[in-house]
């Protein structure tokens, strides 16, 4: 099978995801409304309560809205990753996932293409969010709009791969709702999205450790640094390692000889 075949397959999967996204306009708006509610209401209320000291990558005191913007960007990707995997559980229950899995093209490639397709959609949402966020004076340097892209791709892949692994392990659509509660909310709150790690460390050492080893923190911080055209090697290395782990687990999960598909019996 030559490279052209793989490229056609990749294009087809991304195009399908893009078409689904265009057809489901409410998905786009809900993906935007969620972080904007946090930005417009939560951040406005907490800016007077929480003081943020000067920490890298910031060179001066910043309003709370500016601090939580990277966390909200990662939140968009987290929800998108989980929504993509939710659609995989739905597709599997409804049968349309089978269409993809019986393709002669290797399954790892199909799954990676599906992941990239989800990341592509999440990046569109992030740039739409950044555009609206500029009305809240969240305006990074111009270069930041470009340097954020690699961080968005890798964090989108990590969160999408996590969602894909979860989707392979979940038997029914109903069970997925419970997992969302046990994944999305703990991941978001126990991270550096809403408060800096040093602030959490002041409150609780164990909570600090939970936040520090939370993969979502690595996504948030990678996005934060890249938005200001900086790179933090610790977070960058961490996010790559987490991506590879989740990717490996999700490919194993959908492998017919090892994975979870067989255990489900008929699904």
């Amino acid at each position: 099978m030559n490279l052209v075949v793989y490229i056609r397959c990749f294009k087809g999967i991304v195009l399908r995801e893009a078409l689904r996204f265009i057809h489901q306009k409410e998905r786009f708006f809900s993906a935007l409304v969620r972080p904007l509610v946090w930005l417009g209401i939560f951040a406005a209320g907490f800016r007077s309560v929480l003081g943020v000291a000067i920490i890298p990558p910031y060179e001066t005191y910043i309003p709370y809205e500016v601090y939580i913007a990277p966390g909200l960007i990662a939140m968009i990707q987290l929800f998108n990753g989980m929504q993509s995997s939710l659609s995989m559980v739905y597709d599997r229950e409804m049968g349309s996932m089978k269409t993809m899995l019986v393709s002669p093209i290797p399954r790892w490639f199909l799954l990676c293409s599906k992941l990239f397709a989800g990341v592509f959609v999440s990046i569109l949402q992030v740039y739409a969010f950044l555009l609206i966020a500029s009305f809240w004076d969240i305006i990074p340097p111009v270069s930041g709009y470009f340097t954020i892209l690699p961080a968005l791709i890798i964090s989108g892949l990590m969160l999408g791969a996590l969602g894909m692994f979860l989707s392979s392990a979940i038997k029914q659509l109903e069970n997925f709702a419970g997992v969302m509660n046990f994944v999305i909310f703990p991941m978001f709150f126990a991270s550096s999205a809403l408060y800096p790690l040093w602030k959490i460390e002041e409150t609780s050492e164990w909570l600090y450790l939970v936040c520090f080893y939370n993969p979502f923190t690595y996504a948030v911080e990678s996005i934060r640094f890249s938005l200001y055209s900086q790179i933090n090697f610790e977070y960058s290395a961490g996010i790559i390692i987490f991506t590879l782990i989740f990717l490996f687990l999700s490919i194993m999960g959908y492998d017919p000889s090892r994975g979870n598909l067989q255990k489900k019996g008929g699904k």
Binding site: M1, V4, C9, G12, I13, T99, M100, I105, L110
Partner: peptide
């Protein structure tokens, strides 16, 4: 669109 999606899964131009 459905038929094109299937074609792409088989690498058809």
């Amino acid at each position: 669109e459905n038929l094109h999606y299937h074609s792409s899964l088989h690498g058809i131009s």
